[in-house]
Write a protein that binds this DNA or RNA. Structure first.
Length: 453
RNA sequence: GAGAUUGUAGCUCAGUUGGUUAGAGCGCCAGAUUGUGGUUCUGGAGGUCGCGGGUUCGAGACCCGUCUUUCUCCCCA
């Protein structure tokens, strides 16, 4: 017998934590629904053929793979055991745990495209798993809350994502945040403009670190990655863009030579206009041309949400992908979506002390249990309390009152109804206010009214 | 995947250059109080020192491996 333990990077959530997590889930779900999104759930387990190759080489490595059931080694030859682990994996595992919610969504859309009302708007609140090395704000099992629209190119979707993020964060009490927005087409245009067309991948990896390591080190890294002095010299205008929230004019001037970039700039400006059209006050949006994110499938807008002055990664990310369903044989379906990380939001709110107080009280009133006869009398009372809409429970054992009150105290139950021989004889029950310690007697109706107040 | 770091009671932590029976606070249980919680007092239970090996007369402490925690890189929610 060994002591039980949790698998690395996983956590239990006790009642106190669940109350807080539920608050986050409810807020997000409510907002998604308000914008017309419909719920979807997909299995935790997907075929590896669905998951592999969608997240890049690193992603494939971070996938949790499930060993085939039964005698998984039955069909292996001696030679197979000499294969490198990657190839061996394909022979002994054909299922894995989902890595995000976007790819399973794309699979679902492809499999059900005949029956879906297009454009299809779905939200999905489920855990995902990554075989990452855990650290602050990074877990191996965590919840994502996704909202995606598939089947339309309309930039209204992008604007609504901006609106939803504002609403959700506002309702959670997170006020000091920044929604960074970029467009993949601008990144492509920058690569063209500096004479390194098609090199936006390595360009972004380096430029993405700007606020972390500074301009000089970014330039050094670019040179290391094969960019010439000429390339990086043309990049100079980019470092001057950070001052404004939406420097469209400067961008147009700099990238005038790239049609792709101009299209991206147009798209973003339209999104900005629409957000203004919604009448949103104090928008926390910022155009950030250094924002890159998962380049593997984003083609248009790119989003990322950072909470300011909190040392944690982004709490949300998303973007537009023109051809995600293409890998499942259905090209031409454009989608755009956002994903919120509940676990990081939780950490942020805990650090900033933003959770509403008094959310831990789950039971409103407890009935004591003096003896079998009193408990039996209490059953009817208990039923009526619950019918009155009150969270009520009876202490299950006839033990000394001290113990029962101690239980109520520790569960922070605000009211206790005592029922003993006196109460049964008179029909007037004793109500104890656990906060003040005061007691009074009254009929069940009278007491119920007090408890409900 | 690379580098660093952590692990002693339910929790937070002491534990000297390696030396007898590993401690404290809080919490928990019981009683003081057989119909009254939070305060107080008295008593009590609870540890294979993460796990496995090694060095030593002797290891919680030293060495190796492993798991785990936290952090950096990479990447990400």
């Amino acid at each position: 017998m060994s002591k039980p333990s949790l698998a690395r990077g996983t956590r239990d959530f006790g009642p106190d934590q669940m109350v807080k997590r539920t608050f986050i889930f409810d807020t997000i779900r409510r907002t998604f629904q308000r914008y017309g999104f419909q719920p979807l759930e997909t299995p935790a387990i997907e075929n590896l053929s669905v998951l592999m190759g969608k997240y890049g080489d690193e992603g494939d490595q971070l996938l949790f793979k499930i060993l085939n059931s039964g005698n998984y080694n039955e069909k292996l030859t001696g030679q197979d055991w000499q294969l490198d682990p990657k190839q061996l994996t394909t022979k002994i595992s054909e299922k894995g745990l989902r890595y995000d919610l976007t790819v399973p969504f794309a699979r679902y859309v492809v499999m059900n495209r005949g029956t879906l009302t297009m454009p299809f708007k779905r939200y999905q609140l489920q855990p995902v798993w990554r075989a990452d090395r855990p650290q602050k704000g990074r877990y191996r099992e965590f919840y994502q809350c996704d909202a995606d629209v598939v089947g339309t190119d309309s930039l209204l979707c992008e604007a609504e994502i901006v609106m939803m993020l504002h609403t959700i964060l506002h309702e959670l009490g997170i006020t000091d945040f920044t929604i960074k927005i970029n467009n993949r087409k601008i990144l492509t245009g920058i690569a063209e403009a500096i004479g390194a067309a098609g090199q936006e991948g390595p360009l972004c990896v380096a430029v993405d670190k700007l606020d972390k390591i500074g301009k000089d080190k970014v330039l050094a890294e670019l040179h290391e990655r094969g960019f010439s002095e000429e390339n990086t010299f043309s990049l100079e205008p980019m470092f001057d863009l950070a001052s404004e929230a939406a420097p469209f004019a400067q961008l147009r001037e700099w990238l005038a030579g790239s049609e792709t970039a101009l299209k991206g700039i147009d798209e973003l400006e339209q999104v900005w206009r629409m957000v203004e059209g919604f009448g949103l006050q104090n928008a926390r949006t910022q155009l950030d041309v250094t924002l890159a994110r998962g380049l593997s499938y984003y083609t248009g807008a790119i989003f990322e949400v950072k909470v300011n002055n909190v040392q944690i990664g982004s709490i949300s990310g998303g973007g537009r992908y023109d051809n995600l369903t293409g890998t499942f044989g259905v090209p031409g379906l454009s989608g755009v979506g956002i994903s919120l990380g509940v676990d990081r939001i939780y950490d942020v709110m805990e650090e900033l002390d933003l959770f509403p107080k008094d959310q831990t009280i789950t039971t409103r009133v407890m009935l004591t249990n003096f003896d079998a006869q009193a408990a039996n009398y209490g059953l009817g009372v208990l039923y009526r309390l619950r019918q009155a809409g009150l969270n009520a429970e009876m202490y299950p054992d006839s033990v000394k009152l001290k113990k029962q009150l101690d239980y109520a105290d520790r569960k922070q139950i605000p009211f206790v109804i005592l029922i003993g021989s006196e109460e049964m004889a008179s029909g007037r029950l004793t109500l104890k206010n656990m906060r003040t310690g005061e007691q009074q007697t009254g009929t069940l109706e009278e007491l119920t009214a007090i408890i409900q107040a």
